[in-house]
Design a protein around this nucleic acid. Structure first.
Length: 830
RNA sequence: GGGCAAGUGGUGGAAUGGCAUACACGAAGGACUUAAAAUCCUUUGACCGUAAGGUCGUGAGGGUUCAACUCCCUCCUUGCCCACCA
């Protein structure tokens, strides 16, 4: 009987579906487990990254099911987004038709992998049943002032007349027509995530089961910095220019200040002075530069003198005011004080433009050069010099003293600065959630009343990729009545960023068909929070931050009773081919479907977990998958093992011990997501079983060459062998579920293997009567001895010292130390 | 520039203070076969040695320890994420 994976996999996928094995509902008295993998964008085909992500999740879900949990394991589609519009233009189809077709293909491919999803709970974010609640949440935010409108810049391609996402800007040009990208001001919707910045930062401390680096990345992204706002005054009219710094200890070394080109005061400062034209020209030039160009590291920092001066408030020194592109209006106050000796960017800028430098921090341990000898800024700690009454203080201490002194004199104030900005959600796109807002000439901005939701996307739209928001051209959509005064009004024609969709989908899975709100509170309080979330590191910042923000907001309006949505997070590594990320542009894609056809889903699942630990990148190798395929065939052939009943019963202690040790190892490894070693543990047990069967046949006087499996039916101690085989089938079942189900049935079981409990190990059977002890002389391995497990120290010493291989290394040298690590090794120091 | 990972046989990887290279892949040899495939068995870090055995060996250098891939310090390399963040 060959291992016919095609037939087996088809059979069991059908069985699972028909018997609704994965359908789940809350059950009293059984602990719940919510396992979630990041849902895919439905591009049509699954790729190896999906296979890896979802296999990791599936193994864990099945393991949890077998260890007695009520497991919520779901799948859906993050279905809005630009590729559908691009496909519509390219293939002369419609985004919805294209998307739903892709979803169908993708669902089929996922089913072929045998994943244990409750497909009854499938959701697609482009269904109005779903995006209706995006709109509802938006309205709740609007009510509380957390959704607001302001003008902001977008990347604009003048040729295509369209907005471009940052990733569509290639080398400062449009990805499609390569025209130079301009900045354009538009009125757009924002969500006030900054209102939650403290909590988003503070609650990171709760996330002890998140990878450290993800927490670090979020912390840096929120970017809280403690510093001082210092008030510089214009020399002419004493107008205040506030400057933010984290290094107030260097204030005495400030030799100029720099304003962002967009800084409002700039135009006033230069009015009528000889520099005016030059500065205006510079501002004009910078304003055309896209952010990408301005933030590039390798480009020289440019700037111009404004012709004006201001006063350093600590010593009333006159210092020049400059304008430069490396200062950003959005960060801090939009103005900086420049300390060339202690900030590298300032150092380079000062060097370039011949500006004065002044040392104010003296390094303690290295003799510091004079200003002229410096070839880079000194950014480390040290003692204050040239700093008036603060000279001689350690700079960390001076930071506090100077800040206090400035506050007393009213020339500065301690303040916090945050890097996190509000979230721009307006998109000039069709394939997204319409923003539920109406503009009325009389009433102004009017939210769509809840009862009128959803604001549906019109089906008949021309997608050309040109001319801004496509919805603006759909007359029936735009023209509407004001909900308040009933007079003629216009709908908002922008749609929401798709990150909104994924910011709460994990809640929708708890009650996917609920129609009285975004989710059923009762269901959510049973299932949430997500116990284990699994996905790519590329979502470490935005998606996870937005989801945390939404959760906190929904808690504030009384819909949730917890602060954090995801208890544990696993970020899986990428799948590489020939050392590079698999990607279309590199042409090194391996299609999972072709692998399934050749080796079956079980082999693919097993291989992708066996090749590397989940969180590191893995190298794809077609040759290596042959190995896991072979292994499954080896397991499959256990079905041919039929001990003669006349042979009687009997136990094989060594095999029994191996079986129980393997149960322990595999169980612990799965719990810790060490799937690669879990699998190798099962492989070892399989090898051991084959050995046991082979040895029996030799003992029975058989020709060992005849010991292919069928000939081995004379097995002497079948009890242990049968137990071992049954154990292998159970242990391998989360990894290769189709094969395990089929074998389980062949072994005489009626129900799905998922309904059988996970095997337990007997602690008493783990330990043999003897152990092998390693003997080291001076830390070097010299011999091994087999001794009783509970041997006394004196007896052990005796045996070790009389060991033939040990003797020559000791001879008559005095023994200085005799170290015993129980049941492991002894080390003799001579 | 900042942050975070990682560096072990021909390859993927195992060992987180106690036998370095588990488990696999590949390679070589053998059994079975008319042959092939499949399957099974043996060998497989380097060097010295007929052998027994020995020496070296986890990116480089140093340190702690009876004992270091593992802990500490310095450096090198690669990858990922972020970045004129004041």
């Amino acid at each position: 009987m060959d291992y016919d994976f095609k037939e087996i996999e088809g059979k069991w996928q059908k069985y699972w579906q028909e018997k609704e094995v994965f359908r789940v509902k809350p059950e009293k008295g059984i602990p719940k487990y919510y396992l979630l993998e990041m849902f895919p964008y439905p591009s049509g085909k699954i790729h190896m990254g999906h296979v890896r992500n979802y296999t990791i999740g599936d193994v864990f879900a099945r393991f949890k099911m077998m260890t007695g949990f009520c497991v919520l394991h779901t799948m859906g589609f993050d279905a809005f987004g630009q590729p559908a519009e691009n496909a519509a233009i390219k293939n002369k189809t419609k985004p919805d038709i294209w998307t739903y077709k892709c979803i169908d293909w993708m669902r089929q491919e996922l089913k072929k992998m045998g994943f244990s999803y409750d497909w009854d709970r499938e959701i697609s974010t482009c269904d109005s049943d779903y995006y209706k609640w995006n709109q509802w949440i938006f309205l709740k935010m609007f009510e509380r002032g957390l959704a607001y409108r302001k003008t902001a810049n977008v990347n604009w391609c003048p040729t295509c007349e369209t907005t471009l996402a940052n990733e569509e800007v290639v080398d400062g040009g449009c990805w499609r027509c390569h025209a130079e990208v301009k900045q354009k001001e538009l009125k757009q919707w924002f969500l006030k995530i900054t209102e939650y910045k403290e909590r988003l930062l503070e609650d990171l401390k709760q996330l002890e089961y998140w990878p450290k680096r993800v927490v670090t990345m979020q912390t840096n992204w929120i970017g809280k910095s403690q510093g001082v706002e210092i008030y510089f005054r214009l020399k002419e009219n004493h107008k205040i220019i506030p400057v933010f710094t984290t290094r107030v200890d260097t204030i005495f070394g400030a030799t100029y200040i720099v304003l962002a080109p967009e800084y409002p005061l700039v135009k006033e400062v230069i009015k009528g002075n000889p520099q005016e034209k030059k500065v205006l020209k510079f501002i004009e030039k910078v304003s055309k530069e896209s952010k990408a160009v301005r933030t590039a590291t390798d480009i020289k920092k440019e700037g111009v003198f404004t012709g004006s001066y201001c006063l350093n408030p600590v010593n009333n020194e006159e210092i020049p005011i400059w304008v430069a592109d490396y200062v950003l209006k959005e960060y801090g106050t939009g103005a900086i004080m420049a300390v060339p000796c202690h900030d590298q960017r300032d150092f380079l800028f000062a060097k370039e433009h011949n500006l004065p430098k002044k040392i104010v921090i003296q390094s303690v341990d290295s003799r510091q050069s004079t200003v002229d000898q410096m070839n880079e800024a000194y950014e480390g700690d040290g003692l204050q010099v040239n700093s008036g009454q603060f000279d001689g203080l350690a700079n960390e201490e001076a930071k506090i003293k100077i800040a206090e002194w400035m506050e007393e004199k009213g020339i500065g104030k301690r303040t916090l600065n945050w890097r996190l900005r509000d979230w721009l959600i307006s998109r000039q796109r069709y394939w997204g959630t319409p923003i539920p807002v109406i503009y009325c000439d009389k009433c102004g901005v009017v939210p769509v009343p809840e009862k009128d939701l959803p604001v549906k996307l019109p089906a008949e739209v021309e997608i050309s990729g040109r001319g801004g928001s496509p919805l603006a051209y759909v007359k029936d959509f735009v023209e509407t009545a004001c909900p308040e005064c009933k007079s003629k009004a216009r709908r908002e024609t922008d749609t929401m960023a798709t990150f909104i969709d994924s910011s709460w989908y994990f809640l929708r899975f708890c009650s996917p068909k609920f129609d009285k709100g975004p989710f059923d509170k009762k269901e959510v309080s049973y299932w949430m929070p997500v116990d284990q979330y699994i996905g790519g590191i590329e979502h470490a910042i935005l998606h996870l931050l937005y989801s945390r923000f939404f959760t906190k907001f929904l808690k504030d309006i009384g819909l949730l009773d917890f602060d954090e949505p995801f208890l544990r997070l696993l970020t899986q590594g990428m799948v590489l081919k020939d050392g590079e990320v698999m990607s279309k542009s590199k042409g090194n894609i391996v299609d999972p479907d072709s692998i399934i056809k050749k080796y079956g889903a079980d082999s693919l699942r097993l291989y992708i977990l066996f090749a590397a630990p989940p969180e590191v990148e893995m190298e794809w190798s077609e040759e290596a998958i042959e190995g896991t395929f072979r292994f499954l065939k080896r397991v499959w052939r256990f079905l041919e093992y039929q001990p003669k009943t006349t042979q009687g019963k009997g136990k094989e202690p060594a095999l029994e011990r191996k079986t129980h040790r393997t149960i322990k190892k595999v169980t612990e490894d799965i719990e810790n997501f060490k799937f690669n070693t879990a699998i190798s543990g099962i492989m070892e047990l399989v090898n051991e079983i084959y050995l046991a069967i082979g040895h029996r046949s030799q003992d029975a006087g058989q020709n060992p060459e005849a010991c292919s499996m069928p000939a081995c039916r004379i097995g002497g101690q079948p009890e242990s062998i049968e137990e071992a085989i049954r154990t292998v089938v159970l242990l391998v079942s989360p990894f290769a579920p189709h094969l395990a189900e089929e074998m389980w049935q062949e072994l005489g079981n009626q129900e799905s293997i998922l309904r059988s409990p996970w095997p337990k190990y007997d602690t008493a059977l783990l330990q043999g009567e003897t152990v092998t002890m390693v003997i080291q002389i001076n830390g070097k391995l010299r011999s091994k001895v087999e001794v009783a497990a509970d041997i006394s120290e004196t007896k052990l010493k005796e045996i070790v010292l009389s060991d033939e291989k040990t003797k020559p290394w000791i001879k008559d040298k005095p023994i200085r130390n005799f170290i015993i690590v129980p049941q492991k090794l002894v080390n003799i120091v001579v």
